[in-house]
């Protein structure tokens, strides 16, 4: 049996389908939540729901402990978890307590002894083929995988509440503030992003202008953050934010792999760069060869003149 650790994200359904494609019965576990009717439609007949007052103020180590207690009880062959920050953290705590290995961010999985895996390194820079030898295979599944639902619908999905005794409750949330409703890099439909080629903090004014006209926000490369031109919250890439806008307009950004993995899933990528050989120019859908400070003002002007007519 394979246990899938799900949350409320759409990625959870991909993980479920991926797990089912491995050809073994699949059960689900959530930290509260989970829709049994929907799971029944997807062929899952058991939902374990971890409920504990100790987890109300999310406690990472306690979540891992709870998960491990469930694993010990239901004894799956493997555990496939969504790779959200929270669930990854809980899986790492569970693996640590159990003294088991954990393979994070897997994209290909073959069960067996050992399990054969392909995992993603550096947010997509490289793939690693690996072998996992363990009594229970613990994996997190990278975003963007999919699989065919291996099981037909079942009549109903039984919910089993699971309330373990927890000891590891020292680290818990003491304060929480929710995000304002403003547009962020992660949600903006358009990102006008600038790198070293923008030249200075002031140079971003024209990117702001263009972003405003396109209903988007400004992003940047790590060079811009390191130079203090932009706050880190604007940084796109491996150690910044991974973005998926309709349009990613990369201005004066070379397209180092660590930047590329943060923007590669954008629907359309357009690059503005003086260097026709820059990696991002080659990998973009569209490119303009030229100086940011000549090209962008001209685009702004063209948009304004068309909107007048």
């Amino acid at each position: 049996m394979i246990l899938t650790v799900l949350d409320d994200s759409p990625a959870a359904l991909d993980v479920l389908a991926f797990a089912q494609s491995l050809g073994q019965p699949v059960e689900a576990v959530t930290f509260g939540g989970g829709d049994p009717d929907d799971l029944a439609k997807r062929g899952v007949s058991t939902l374990h729901r971890i409920t504990s007052d100790e987890l109300a103020d999310y406690a990472p180590a306690a979540s891992g402990e709870a998960l491990l207690r469930l694993i010990e009880q239901v004894r799956p062959d493997g555990v496939l978890a969504v790779s959200s920050d929270r669930v990854t953290e809980a899986m790492a705590h569970a693996a640590t307590l159990a003294r088991l290995p954990l393979a994070t961010n897997c994209v290909e999985v073959t069960t067996g002894d050992p399990w054969l895996l392909t995992r993603v390194r550096g947010g997509g820079m490289l793939l690693e083929e690996a072998e996992l030898t363990a009594d229970v295979a613990l994996l997190t599944i990278a975003q963007g995988v999919s699989g065919e639902i291996g099981a037909g619908p079942v009549a109903s999905c039984e919910v089993r509440e699971f309330t373990p005794e927890l000891t590891a409750t020292q680290a818990r949330v003491v304060e929480r503030t929710s995000r304002g409703s403003g547009m962020t890099l992660a949600t903006a439909p358009v990102i006008v992003s600038g790198g070293r080629g923008v030249g200075s903090a002031d140079g971003y004014a024209v990117l702001e202008e263009l972003a405003k006209r396109l209903g988007g926000v400004v992003g940047c490369s790590r060079v811009a953050t390191n130079n203090g031109w932009r706050p880190h919250s604007d940084q796109v890439g491996l150690t910044g934010t991974k973005v998926t806008p309709e349009l990613y307009l990369a201005c004066g950004i070379s397209g180092a792999t660590q930047h590329w993995v943060g923007c590669m899933d954008s629907k359309v990528i357009m690059a503005v760069n003086t260097d026709p050989e820059a990696p991002l120019v080659r990998r973009a859908n569209y490119a303009v060869i030229g100086d940011v400070h000549e090209v962008l003002p001209a685009i702004v002007k063209e948009i304004d003149s068309r909107s007048k007519t």
Binding site: A271, R282, Y286, A287, I289, G290, I299, E302
Partner: peptide, 12 residues
């Protein structure tokens, strides 16, 4: 490979 839309301001 990218479609090159032009060079400099003329590409606007």
């Amino acid at each position: 490979e990218a479609i090159v839309l032009g060079h400099g301001a003329d590409a606007a």
